[in-house]
Design a binder for these strands. Structure first.
Lengths: 225, 225
DNA sequence: TCAATAGTGTCTATAAGACACTATGCC
DNA sequence: GGCATAGTGTCTTATAGACACTATTGA
């Protein structure tokens, strides 16, 4: 941050975008909205907007505000992904967007929002298709060494449910017995005493939740368990 | 990126900062420069500067320009770390900086630059101390599952040298025999035919380099091997 | 009792750590 | 040949996959 001889407030746009991911019917989906203004009026786009320097205490706070205002979602997990910037990604001129991603349980969203499987995206505004691709790659990758996927489940979930989430993200079969062992030895999850979930005419599965000691670490840290 | 009713060019600063890391005498060090202007005139700070929308094709390009102009370094590895933003980190008002990190072999730098061990930093301008702490944590963490540390060595290096780099970053003893096995089975490194490095009056070590097939993947991808 | 999935225990295969052993340079 | 470090081979231990077995529910 050593200054140059540059004007301190050059002509550029500074925005945030949010890639909200959730699982519907075993598919990873992203929340998109139709743009109501030019450029790309009517096209599908990531929810986002300008950073409001009067009210946003950080880029992440701006992303949180966008989540609440546009998607009516309070996400248990919101992480900065990185930026996308340059002179051509927005036809109006040089722009930089700070991309965030949120992981939520499948839920009813604002009626202006639609979920699309990440494998079948419509035409998108700006460079949003590329951004989504990069975010999905990162999230799937993180699944292989972190407990991030628990945020795609609700606050309580069964081991077979969580197992299915991991298999979807990693796109490979994971031995269920090994998965249970791993979960048990990591100690991040704890059984909810006495609670089970019945899914058919067969033995119900125990419900689990993130152990108290790990709750803060998981949502604050971006690290591994 | 759906617009709000906000002015498109509000009063904020948009900068890049570069955390250049290298190893000197077995210690991880960061390159710092003295600020020549207010605020924090005379204080140590990360090399950085405003993004020049006329010439910088992206935030990363701006970081690369800063590396070349201020540090006279062409780094083999430059990665975006993330952003730091808010109304208070710069006394002049709301600012956002896109932080990058570069990993280089120990080398002679511009005489305005000084290397400080990351464990013994001087007082720093802005929130640079916190930024360095977060970057160092990420880089050390990445060492545990990626080949990133090879960039702290030169283009050719011995296995014992690389081993020492990993031990420094991870701050723990790594069995050398296991380390060799791992290197061998990953296949990322190849011996430079016939070349060895003599370090004393004892058997010289073979020199290795990143195998051609991995060179692009390592410098482009931020992933694991 | 059967169907269907939840959950456990055990055997096997693979990979990592421990460590002894050999190799090779200079003196 | 001795010293110091480079590099290899082998034994042991920890961990993951395979898979059989038991558990529990509704019908």
């Amino acid at each position: 941050m050593v200054e140059s001889n540059q004007s301190p407030f050059p002509a550029h746009a500074l925005t945030v975008d949010v890639v909200l991911l959730t699982l519907c019917d075993g598919e990873l989906c992203v929340a998109l909205m139709r743009r109501d203004k030019a450029p790309y009026e009517g096209a599908w786009a990531l929810p986002g907007g300008y950073i409001h320097v009067q009210e946003d205490d950080s880029a992440k706070a701006a992303a949180d505000r966008v989540l609440q205002e546009k998607l009516a979602v309070v996400s248990p997990y919101l992480e900065e992904f990185g930026t996308s910037s340059g002179p051509t990604r927005d036809p109006r001129g040089w722009s930089l967007t700070v991309v965030h991603f949120a992981l939520v349980q499948h839920q009813v969203l604002s009626h202006e929002v639609k979920l699309f499987p990440v494998e079948h995206l419509p035409a998108l505004a700006f460079d949003h298709k590329e951004i989504i691709g990069r975010v999905v790659e990162r999230v799937c990758n993180k699944a292989s060494y972190s407990s991030l996927p628990v945020f795609l489940c609700g606050p309580e979930f069964t081991i077979p449910e969580l197992h299915a989430v991991y298999e979807t993200l990693l796109d490979e079969a994971i031995p269920l017995a090994s998965f249970r062992r791993k979960i048990a030895e990591l100690g991040v999850l704890e059984a909810v005493p006495g609670k089970t979930k019945l899914a058919g005419s067969f033995r119900p599965a125990k419900l689990y939740r993130v152990a108290r000691a790990f709750q803060r670490r998981l949502s604050v840290q971006s690290g591994r368990f």
